[in-house]
Write a protein that binds this DNA or RNA. Sequence first.
DNA 1: CAAAGAACTGAACACCAATTCAGACACTCT
DNA 2: AGAGTGTCTGAATTGGTGTTCAGTTCTTTG
Lengths: 224, 224
Amino acid sequence: MVYRRTQQVVKRLAARRQAILSAARETAAEGGMSAVQIAPVATRARVAAGTVYRYFPCKADLISELIAEVSRDELAAIRRAADAAPGPSSALAAAVTTVAVHVLSHRKLAWGILAEPVDVDVTASRLASRREIAGEIELRIGAAVRAGHLPAQDTALAATALLGALHESLVGPLAPDNLDDAGRLRDAVQTVTLLALRAVGVMDARARGLVVQAVMPARILVGA
Amino acid sequence: MVYRRTQQVVKRLAARRQAILSAARETAAEGGMSAVQIAPVATRARVAAGTVYRYFPCKADLISELIAEVSRDELAAIRRAADAAPGPSSALAAAVTTVAVHVLSHRKLAWGILAEPVDVDVTASRLASRREIAGEIELRIGAAVRAGHLPAQDTALAATALLGALHESLVGPLAPDNLDDAGRLRDAVQTVTLLALRAVGVMDARARGLVVQAVMPARILVGA
DNA sequence: CAAAGAACTGAACACCAATTCAGACACTCT
DNA sequence: AGAGTGTCTGAATTGGTGTTCAGTTCTTTG
C-alpha cells in the first residue's frame, strides 16, 4: 500500500460531498422535491451522476441528509429566538414565529422537506425532523405551563398540533398565495401565531401582546 | 347499428365501475395509497387490468374520484353533526369532533387521501377536497363569530389551521400510536377539539364544556 | 342462429429515473 | 518516472408500474 489520503484530498472529498448536498438543497428550493433527481443534482454540483453514488449509497440517503441538514438549521434558529426571549410565554411565541417565518421564507423547500411526495422512502428522516422541532416546541410549552402561564395539558399533542396548524396554513395547498409581499407575510405570521398561542391556552388579549413582541424584531422578517 | 345498450348492461357497467372504485378504496384503507396499483385493484374488483381503463382514462383519474368520494362522505358527516347542534359554537365543536373521529377511524385511508405520496398527480383533487372541508369549517367559524361567540378573525386561515392541527396530531407521522383503544381515542379527540376551539378564541372553561357535549353522542365514537 | 358491435382479457410494451461499471484519469509514494 | 491505488465519468442497464391492443368472449338484434 503506497497510497495515503493526503489532507488536500480529504478536504476536496468533503467539499464535493457538501457541493452535492447543496446542489440538492438548491434544486429542492427551486423546483421542489420532484426536481431533486440524481442527474440534475450531479450536473449542478459539477460531477457526473455516478459520482453521487461515491458519496451517497442511494438517493434516499441523499434526501435524508438534506432533510436532516435543513432541520438542524431550523432547530438552531428556533432555539436562538426562544432563548433570547424574556420569559417562557415570549419564548413560545418567539419559537412559533420563527417556524412561521422560516417556513414562509422558503416555501418550496419547506413543503418538500415536510410533505411533498418523494419517490423514495424518507419517512424515517422526516419523522426525525418533525420530532426534533416538535420536541423543542414541546419544551417551551412545558416551561410556560410550569410557570403557571398556561393550563396543564398534553404538551406533546399540543406541540404537534401547533406545527400542523402552522404548516397547513402557511405552506399547505390551501395556504394563501399572496404571501410574497412583506406586509401580508407579516399579517399571516401574526394571525397564525395568535391562533397557536390561544390554542395552548393563552388568553386572547395577552396573546395579542405576545404576538406583537415576537414579530417585532425586523431581522426575523428578512428571512434566512 | 344493431346494438343498443340495454338497461341490464347499463347497470352492470355502473356496478363494475363502482366495484373498481370500491376496490381502490379498500386497498387504500388497508395498505395506503402506495398499495393502490392498477393490477391489484383490478384483481380485487375481479376484472383484468385493461378493463380498468375502460372506466378510468388513467390512474390519476381513478384516484381523483376516490378522493372525491371519500371527501363527499366526510363533508356529509360534518354537516349532519353540525346541523344537529343547538348553537353555532356547539356546531363548530361538533364539526371539529366529527373530523377528528372520522380521521381516526380510518387512519390509513385519511393519510392516503390527505398527504401520502402518490406516483401520479392528484394535487387538484386533494386541493378540492381540502377546500370543501375547510370551507365547511370556515362557515361554522363565521357563524360563531357573527353570533358574538368568537372574536373577529380571518376565518379562512383559521379553518385551514384547525384542519392542519387535527390532521398532523391525529394521522401525521407524530400521531400517538396507541389510539386503538376507545378510551385513548376519546381522550385524543377531546384534547384536540379543545385546542381547536381555544385557537379560534373560545375561552378555556367554555371550550371544555363544548368538548364534553360534542363528544357525548356515543354513536359518533363507533366510527363510520 | 348469424352478424355486428361492445366489452374484456392479459401479455407485451413504453417510459423514466435510479443505479451500475468498465474504462479514463488523478494522486501518492518509491 | 511509473507502479499502485483511488476517484470520476457517462452511457448502458435495470426494474417496476402504468398503459396499450390484438385477440377473445359476451350481448343484441334481425
